[in-house]
Simulated scan of single mutants.
Amino acid sequence: MTKKLKVVVIGTGNVAAIAIRCIQGREDMELVGVWAHRETAGHLVGTDAGLLDADQPCGVTITDNEEEIFELKPDCAICVINIRNPVVCDQVNGEWYKKFLKRGINVVSPSVANLIYPPACPDQEYIADISQTAHYGNASIYVNGQEPGFAEHLAMLAATCSNTIKTITTSEMFNYSTTQEREELTYAYGFDEPAEYVAALEPPEFQIACWGVPIRNVADKLGYKLEKITASFEKRVTEKDIEVGYGIIQAGKVAAVRLRTCGIVNGREAIVVEHINRMSQDIAPDWPMTDRVGQIRVVIEGDPNLQLDFNVGLKENPEELSYDGYVMTAMRIVNAIPYVCEAAAGIVTIHDLPLTTPSTAFRSDAVFVPHKVCKPKK
């Protein structure tokens, strides 16, 4: 049997915890170490990593010692440190990327959108720094996730059925009412705040910094140069109190948002990324709707007209939406590990790798029962 790849996980949040669970039982890799951020998860140090998202230990003890992680000489590191401030989060993950890459250790991560498609990053000095470090260590780094990441990959797949395209729109339509942590929603989107509250993603430059990446990715794949990228942010308040996963959203507070980022080609909107997120299905009925609590929808207006609805979670179990979304994100990078370890040194993207299908996918995971609830890891 081929030798298993040794994997470490940097972080202990929801995505990290799920990645730890999903590595168990695989024939191509094994978990050998987990690192916890001392300031945000120091209480987890010394505990078994398997208990973060499953019902039994996995035999790996969580540490906050960086050198212990490096001494394990892993083949790949999963870097998923989650810090609410996106700028600080990018910086912390970026520091870890370089620590591993210069030691010849491959890296996968869902955390820094600019590395999903480096040509779209406005800071090319940062891209050059990461790339040079990877080449120095003869290692590879792959960043991808649910959205950005999988969603534009899905859009490109749909476009293979097109003759001509007027507009290609990718929409994330999620109902976040089962989310357990209020701050997770208020900071980014402004949910449960007055209408005048300015959310982190509300300024156009922040939207463009995030979703300009997948828009540019699609445009380049189709062979077009964007003239500009525009952004808009709409919000709606609820007229009644709403019971949600963490408590009550009172009447008059924001309970639905619509973010729309558009790539302009030939003077018109050609590539659009939307986020239409609600805390209750009866809010903003004039916006695009789905009867599912979680869906990624790709609509292509053109020849032919196409619509692809990708549902997340079971319709009859809406409380699993958040969890299943995190599993999607985790598996975009966990499944890529064998391919990344075989890739040429440097920054690799979906354009460099084959389909990152899972190994031993039909194995039984019954012994590792997931918690199925995503709560803040305190």
Rank of each mutant, 00 (worst) to 15 (best):
T2Q: 04
K6P: 06
V8C: 06
V9F: 01
G13Y: 07
V15R: 09
A16W: 00
A19G: 12
A19M: 02
R21A: 04
D28Q: 00
E30Y: 09
V32R: 10
H37W: 10
T40S: 10
A41Q: 12
V45Q: 14
D48K: 06
A49Q: 04
L51S: 02
D53W: 07
Q56W: 00
P57F: 11
C58Q: 06
I69R: 07
L72Q: 04
D75M: 08
A77N: 11
I78E: 06
C79A: 10
C79M: 10
V80L: 14
V80T: 13
I81R: 00
I83N: 05
V87W: 04
N93A: 08
G94P: 13
K99E: 13
V108I: 11
S109C: 04
A113S: 15
N114Q: 07
N114M: 09
L115F: 15
I116F: 11
P119Q: 13
C121T: 13
Y126L: 12
Y126H: 03
A128I: 05
D129V: 02
I130A: 10
I130D: 12
H135L: 14
H135Y: 09
Y136I: 11
Y136R: 14
N138T: 03
S140A: 10
Y142R: 00
P148R: 09
F150D: 12
A151G: 08
L157C: 08
A158C: 06
A159S: 11
S162T: 11
N163H: 09
T164F: 11
K166E: 14
T167H: 08
T167I: 10
T169N: 14
S171P: 09
E172G: 15
T179D: 05
T179M: 03
T179N: 05
E181D: 15
R182V: 14
E183H: 12
T186L: 08
Y187K: 05
D192V: 03
D192S: 04
E193G: 09
E193F: 02
E193I: 10
P194V: 15
V198R: 14
V198E: 15
P203F: 02
P204I: 07
A209D: 15
V213G: 07
P214M: 02
P214F: 02
V218P: 07
K221T: 03
G223K: 13
K225A: 15
I229A: 01
T230G: 07
S232F: 11
E234I: 04
E239D: 12
D241V: 07
I242Q: 06
V244K: 01
G245S: 04
G247K: 15
I249D: 00
A256Q: 09
R260M: 04
R260L: 02
I264A: 04
V273E: 00
A284R: 10
M289K: 15
M289V: 14
T290M: 01
R292K: 13
V293K: 09
I296Y: 15
R297Y: 10
V299A: 02
V299N: 05
I300C: 01
E301L: 08
V312W: 07
V312Y: 08
L314Q: 13
L314R: 13
N317M: 03
P318H: 01
S322W: 06
S322K: 10
Y323Q: 00
V327M: 07
T329D: 00
M331L: 05
I333G: 03
V334S: 04
P338M: 06
Y339N: 00
C341G: 00
I347H: 02
I350H: 15
P354I: 08
L355D: 14
T356H: 01
P358K: 11
V373E: 13
K378N: 05
